[in-house]
Design a protein around this nucleic acid. Structure first.
Lengths: 198, 198
DNA sequence: ATGATACGATACGGTATCGTAGCGTTGTAT
DNA sequence: ATACAACGCTACGATACCGTATCGTATCAT
């Protein structure tokens, strides 16, 4: 399936691709970095060219427009989080939220997300990306809750969306609105509250 | 105290101020509008001048720089919310959150806030404004909780900050992250959960 | 070797925006 | 009436950015 040029196919070929891929990779890496520092609005193609060493011309040979590059970089920022399986709902939730709590102050995406949220407020393309990122973050929780329902640990009528909001909301709130620290004690307090009410 | 020019004081005077104030008011009104539409980044002095009818020159006679104007506009956006006093904690919380739930999808500040959050991530001046807005939003809740503690309805050791996050977080989460509707049923479910765990 | 493909460097046109200068006009005070 | 303060208009200079054009160079396939 890799089409290793048998006839006179003067096309892709592994080595050619590797050259292309190196450029794309360098550009995207720098794009990440720049996004983390300045958000969507602080992102300029010229700066990416300067930092990455890849000529602006080359960048425009791979991405038709600035926005396409930004979107590409944002898309690849979506963290695919693992869903743990500890056997109990409380165990799963604790593992998931603790992980997120540790990522919130450090992960690159946490610096870019406000920018995406802001842009998404008025730009459908970014609204779509934001939606995907969002689903990615909520997926492990939803899965854990779904499993708990299947195990009979939760009622089949449980409103999963509400619980997700009740669990994720407080963490996000602290990261971007109240800007208070998110320690394990806080995470436990939130989990305890939500579980107690099920 | 109003200095109505008695001698040869060719200065302030009421009418002069009214002319100045009219300009300032027109500019700020337009600035609000523009902020709501395009966020901090979509905000340009030229556009304010165009829409408000106030010459750009005049704008710069009142605000030294674009940023000063944006900050001024943001500052005045801080909604001073009333703290209801229904007598019971549940009543107060319900009133407060219901109000916020109704404002979140409609109020001007809800369209600008992501932009401020984003800017605040890298700009100390906006971090300060964001902090003030934040405190303003949380104040009624904190007050209601404080009163409940004084009434003995809550333990004196109650962690108010955690409860605020548990209540506000889910609402904010739905507005800017999951983008799900925030109906009264949802608000009640959140309140019920939190109150049940006190 | 030779042609094709990707890349780099430079320059450019076009646009948007900030902030200022010059100068005439309108409103206000005495 | 006259002086003064605030305003409006137009035009700038300066800068930053987008996206393209041009041309020469390096890498790869055959």
């Amino acid at each position: 399936m890799v089409n290793t040029s048998k006839k006179s196919e003067r096309v892709p070929s592994a080595k050619m691709n590797s050259r292309v891929e190196r450029s794309r990779h360098n550009v995207l890496t720098t794009a990440f970095e720049l996004l983390s520092e300045g958000g969507v609005n602080g992102f300029t193609v010229d700066e990416v060219a300067r930092r990455s060493g890849v000529a602006k011309t080359t960048i425009y040979r791979h991405w038709p427009t600035r926005e396409a590059l930004v979107i590409d970089a944002c898309t690849r920022m979506i963290a695919e989080q693992e869903t743990p399986d500890t056997g109990s709902l409380e165990g799963d939730i604790t593992a998931i939220l603790t992980e997120i709590a540790h990522l919130l102050p450090t992960a690159n995406w946490s610096f870019v997300l406000p920018s995406i949220v802001d842009t998404a407020e008025r730009n459908p393309e970014f609204a779509e990306i934001h939606s995907r990122i969002q689903r990615g973050h909520a997926a492990p929780l939803r899965e854990a809750l779904q499993r708990a329902i299947e195990r009979g640990e939760l009622s089949a009528h449980t409103d999963v969306s509400t619980i997700v909001a009740a669990l994720m909301g407080p963490l996000f709130y602290r990261r971007w609105f109240s800007r208070e620290p998110i320690d394990d004690q806080f995470v436990k307090a939130i989990i305890k509250r939500v579980l107690a009410s099920l």
